[in-house]
Design a protein around this nucleic acid. Structure first.
Lengths: 239, 239
DNA sequence: GTAATAGTGTCTCTCAGACAGTATGTC
DNA sequence: GACATACTGTCTGAGAGACACTATTAC
């Protein structure tokens, strides 16, 4: 919290009285937006138009607006919407990165969030400078944003094994094969078709879209969607 | 991160040039220290000796020292050592809490950590004002520290089901029954003796202390310790 | 001997993985 | 018909829970 320790003769710069003993840290939020296009994971990067790291791609991020943001999650949501137009993604706090060297302007905090959306959501209106890049082709990002991206990918990989998070990466309607491919991509692991389907059936968060099929040069595949009432975030079983 | 957004005309207060557009947030760290005494979970609280929340117990915490701390984890470690004398606990980032109201002095961030130690470690030298309290008797804490404490207990509960975190709460040498009781306490769930032992055996992070036993009015119990080379943080199986 | 706790053996049921087999579309 | 992909059924082995049984101490 935000209380001086007993032997810690310092105050905050935020409210008047005394001068702070310790230089204040910079505080900001960053967002790793992940989505799936053509069986590949993409993230959004923004080309910086000013120093530091001018001209380099970075994750979308920015300062907290202490006048208006109710918390850091709201700041992340606002930042993401400004860059990409996306309003209500799945958004979860990832980790807080900190230190004197990650931003050349000084000792800084970044509260990182990750967001999962489907490609229909992301296609709408991207701000100039923002663009989708496959996660395995992002190259060097400004600040410590490669580390943050890797952290998000690892978190998604781990959490997918006991949650339905990958569903957020798909459009509202999808086939079981598409869902399985998404899990395999995210978890970097092959899954067995029949047990995958059994488990999904048992968990019961999918709803058959009666009479709706994905067609092709083969047998049509049943379309499903998430049951609107179900939470996708925690299972007692492994997927 | 720590970069102005394109349309975000603002700078940081940390390094000179321009004036910040947004008031800076207060930044601090807080630590939930957990330990086990007589089959009960305890945490450390510190009575505040100044406003806000003067006289109320709070979690140990304080400002980041941007001149010396290499990151927020180091700040948490330093803070904890100052209050309790504990030097090298298991220490993991928990969550970052933020908002305009959690600290009456202004919009604030707190990067919360939780630490797990055994009672022998904690008994050494507690600072004046710091004391151990059973987690179910802490009462009202200053700031939003009850929420942070609950968050830590929940995290420990969740993570214990697939890790050996509860081992950090016990002394170096312990019996299997003691370990099982610790798991049950933390997970709030009864465990089956024989399968618990089977699983520990299979995971192989315990080492028999040959010829060493805990005695009492009954059959002596074999003492174990953690195999020094083993990581306790991630298992592929459930405990 | 009894009480108390430590530790083991065995049965059963569930479930995940393997894999083969069937179904239904396009061409 | 061949092919491609969707979907289902069955076998097997691993492991978790239940629970009874044995072991070793103090008294």
């Amino acid at each position: 919290m935000t209380h001086p320790a007993e032997n810690d003769k310092l105050t905050t710069a935020a409210q008047p009285p005394e001068a702070p003993k310790h230089k204040q840290a910079i505080t900001s939020v960053d967002v790793v937006l992940l989505t799936l296009v053509d069986r590949r994971l993409y993230t959004v990067v923004v080309d910086r138009d000013r120093p530091p790291f001018e001209g380099m791609p970075t994750l979308p991020g920015g300062y907290v607006h202490t006048e208006t943001d109710p918390d850091s999650r709201a700041a992340a949501r606002r930042t993401l919407e400004k860059k990409t137009g996306i309003k209500a993604p799945y958004l979860e706090q990832l980790y807080t990165f900190s230190g004197p060297d990650r931003d050349p302007r000084g000792w800084s905090f970044s509260v990182a969030y990750y967001a999962l959306v489907n490609k229909d959501t992301v296609a709408l209106r991207m701000n100039a400078g923002a663009r989708l890049v496959p996660v395995d082709e992002v190259g060097e990002l400004g600040f410590d944003h490669n580390e943050i991206l890797d952290f998000a990918l690892k978190r998604l990989q781990d959490k997918s094994s006991y949650s339905a998070l990958p569903c957020y990466l798909l459009p509202k309607e999808f086939t079981l094969t598409e869902l399985q491919e998404t899990y395999e991509l995210v978890m970097k692991e092959r899954l067995e078709k029949s047990s995958f389907r059994r488990k999904l059936e048992d968990m019961g968060f999918l709803e058959v879209l009666e009479g709706q099929f994905r067609t092709g040069k083969h047998r049509p595949a049943q379309l499903y969607r998430i049951r609107p009432d179900k939470s996708l975030t925690l299972f007692d079983r492994t997927v």
